[in-house]
Nucleic acid binder design. Sequence first.
DNA 1: TTATAAGTAGAACTTCCGTTCTTTGTCAAA
DNA 2: TTTGACAAAGAACGGAAGTTCTACTTATAA
Lengths: 234, 234
Amino acid sequence: MVHSNTAEPDRSKLSERQRRILDFIENFIENHSYPPTIREIGEAVKIGSTSVVNYNLNKLVKAGFIERAPDVSRGLRLVHENELEEVGVMVSHANIRRIPLVGQIVASEPVPIPGDDFGYNFDEDDTIEIPAQLLGKKTSRESVYALRVKGNSMIDALVRDKDVVVLHRQETANNGDMVAVWLRDTGETTLKYFYQEGGQVRLQPANTTMEPIYVDARQVQIQGKVLAVLRSVS
Amino acid sequence: MVHSNTAEPDRSKLSERQRRILDFIENFIENHSYPPTIREIGEAVKIGSTSVVNYNLNKLVKAGFIERAPDVSRGLRLVHENELEEVGVMVSHANIRRIPLVGQIVASEPVPIPGDDFGYNFDEDDTIEIPAQLLGKKTSRESVYALRVKGNSMIDALVRDKDVVVLHRQETANNGDMVAVWLRDTGETTLKYFYQEGGQVRLQPANTTMEPIYVDARQVQIQGKVLAVLRSVS
DNA sequence: TTATAAGTAGAACTTCCGTTCTTTGTCAAA
DNA sequence: TTTGACAAAGAACGGAAGTTCTACTTATAA
């Protein structure tokens, strides 16, 4: 485990207010690229008086978390912000897979599959990198692809708008696999757990509080097996 | 997450003055960590009139080099500021962050937070690797950690048993952030979208078909901001 | 030439924002 | 109790800073 050589001052020595102020400053700079004013800080941390914010900012200076430029609006800087270099250090030799993001998955349309030319012209640059450990083991390179979820119609699969699902292209599935299926009768794509039961197929939502649906096996066309789901909230 | 080729606008299309202004802004931010004022720019580029600087800044906005926040002092940001980062991505082409998996998140218990010593002794080896692109921008390394979800009590956050949530340690949040919160009155941990509404807080489930809950702000203790959710199905 | 736009200047105006001062309250040591 | 350090609150002051308006210049094209 790599430790940073520029030890950050002890955050736990700060008062509750000072910690909240520091959090807010970091957040604000992240969002705006410029520092907040005293009044903006006060509003966020629920301090009515500018002098109190000023007071606590000076405490943060003394504690070594920030620096201030006197008589300068937004004259504020985080001392320990240089993580960029460290990120570089953290680049690992992990087993990373670059996967093409070939399109969208929508409830009302079949799943686009690379190779099956749907006329989709996806950008060659549209790729996503994920650690191989998320994918399980024996996935051949060509048969893995990713789709961005469009809309919230697959909520019952615990998948929401803008999520990315990673699929393995295959037309059959084992019991218990999560699959993307195309239902011929209703003309819908869904993500479900797959169970073959005689001539029927039980499709079980990932949300275990919801009821499964039973469909004739010939109505079910498996588009691929779900390997992973990624959600970026930030 | 997606590698889009956002090419920098053509600098040669700018006038001499605009180029000097842009140069100065980049330099200034580098040195001060906050953007310059109109008058500081004018002084550096030898423009006596603030309106002329203002005029050229708007040109730079139109040309796609900067963004401005109206009525905000130093409300200035470079659009294409992270060339360095992008180079890094191109070279290593796998910008991977190794993140400690410090414990579990359960509905009935507070969120374990590294540093806040809960007596948790998590295994040093217990880490996960994820692409930095999933985390948003420059989150400091110490403050990011991951938890494995235990149980299906957070289904309404579209998170299921064995999922991994990546958190940024912080005690405040902006509206629209997804956060892990500890509700003092009920003694529960949940994952919700956060909205401050006066003295109250609206906690909105990720599943948009479900109703939000309203809680007094003092009953809400923010444990961290959710950066990403990972689900390995295979 | 004329006209229309682009660029430059200067000044006034209003708001923003850091600083300072006074007052009040709390807590622990003397 | 008194004292003093620390924390908080509110108000007021003055300078900082973005905006706007008008006027003057320089190109560029018709």
